[in-house]
Amino acid sequence: MEQPGFTASLVAGGVAGASVDLILFPLDTIKTRLQSPQGFYKAGGFHGIYAGVPSAAIGSFPNAAAFFLTYEYVKWFLYTDSSSYLMPMKHMLAASAGEVVACLIRVPSEVVKQRAQVSASSRTFQIFSNILYEEGIHGLYRGYKSTVLREIPFSLVQFPLWEFLKALWSWRQEHVVDSWQSAVCGAFAGGFAAAVTTPLDVAKTRIMLAKAGSSTASGNVLSALQGVWRSQGLAGLFAGVFPRMASISLGGFIFLGAYDQTRGLLSEVGREGP
């Protein structure tokens, strides 16, 4: 396996991440408000569904670029011809490493974005300043552990499934999948992963939106899940599952399709260059 073009991975990941975050932002807002402790309509309902978009716009490119740069490097580093049956495990390890690195950028952006989504009257910069003033840098990383605990299981499902579906489709048609086919595989893999990890997403949302100093704000995922279970039952644990599945299915289509397309184009340019 050739060493991947790391610049191509970085740029392609950034373009894909920015595209999906901005296109699907309204669905993400609706999902966040469905999961918020005050309820959908008190959190803003359908009003101001682009609240928090500056935070997403700033964080999406470097976040996705960091993920794919790490993902491709670890996948290349672990590759061996003699152990192809271990490839799903290697994809899992690569995706997990990518999430740990990407969350260093994603979490501060996500904290600011989600608070803006449930408080549409407040400006993004004002929310960012208030967090720094009241909680310091630690406040921007509230929910880091819960985000990683959500993203790693998500990636453990999504990326091996995406790679498997691409390989299966390539085998059936006897040539490598096109970008649109990769996008279809990404949509299916993303939607399935979104459904099974929704409770972890609910816990992450509650932790990020909790009042400073509260027990939920401490970041204990199990405690947050128990609180939701006691107050709202199974329905609470899967709050926002349909907009989450819709958003991530569409996101997987755009994100992974755009990633493969952009990376392929950049790799071609690199090969044709001097």
Rank of each mutant, 00 (worst) to 15 (best):
M1Y: 06
M1W: 06
M1T: 07
E2I: 10
P4W: 08
P4I: 09
F6V: 05
T7Y: 09
T7N: 10
T7V: 15
S9T: 05
L10I: 12
L10E: 03
V11K: 03
G13K: 15
G14T: 11
A16H: 12
A16W: 11
V20D: 00
V20F: 11
L24K: 05
L24G: 07
L27E: 06
D28G: 12
T29K: 09
T32D: 15
R33K: 06
Y41E: 09
Y41K: 05
A43G: 03
F46L: 07
H47N: 08
H47V: 07
G48I: 03
I49S: 05
Y50E: 02
A51C: 04
G52R: 10
P54W: 05
I58C: 04
S60F: 08
F67V: 08
F68A: 04
F68Q: 11
Y73M: 10
K75P: 00
K75G: 05
L78Q: 09
T80P: 01
T80D: 13
D81P: 11
S82D: 14
S83T: 13
S84F: 04
L86G: 06
M87N: 13
M89L: 15
M92Q: 06
M92S: 08
L93G: 00
S96V: 12
S96D: 10
G98T: 10
E99F: 07
E99I: 05
E99D: 08
V101Y: 02
A102T: 05
I105E: 01
V107L: 14
P108A: 10
V111S: 08
K113T: 10
Q114V: 09
A120G: 13
S121E: 15
S122W: 11
S122Y: 12
R123M: 12
F125Q: 09
I127W: 03
F128N: 04
S129A: 14
L132W: 06
Y133P: 00
G136S: 12
G136T: 12
I137E: 04
L140F: 06
Y141T: 07
Y144I: 14
S146L: 07
E151I: 01
S155H: 02
S155Q: 02
V157A: 01
V157P: 02
Q158G: 01
E163W: 08
E163L: 10
L165Q: 11
L165H: 07
L165K: 11
K166S: 03
S170V: 02
W171I: 00
R172N: 09
Q173K: 14
Q181D: 00
S182A: 15
F188P: 03
G190F: 06
T198G: 03
P199L: 03
L200V: 01
L200C: 01
V202F: 01
A203C: 04
A203K: 02
K204I: 02
T205N: 08
M208I: 14
A212Y: 07
G219L: 09
G219I: 07
S223Q: 14
G227A: 12
V228T: 12
W229T: 00
Q232S: 14
Q232W: 02
A235W: 05
F242D: 00
F242H: 05
M245Q: 11
M245G: 05
S247Y: 02
L250V: 06
G257P: 02
G257N: 01
Y259L: 15
Y259N: 13
R263I: 03
G264D: 09
L265Q: 12
L265C: 08
L266Y: 04
S267C: 12
G273S: 14
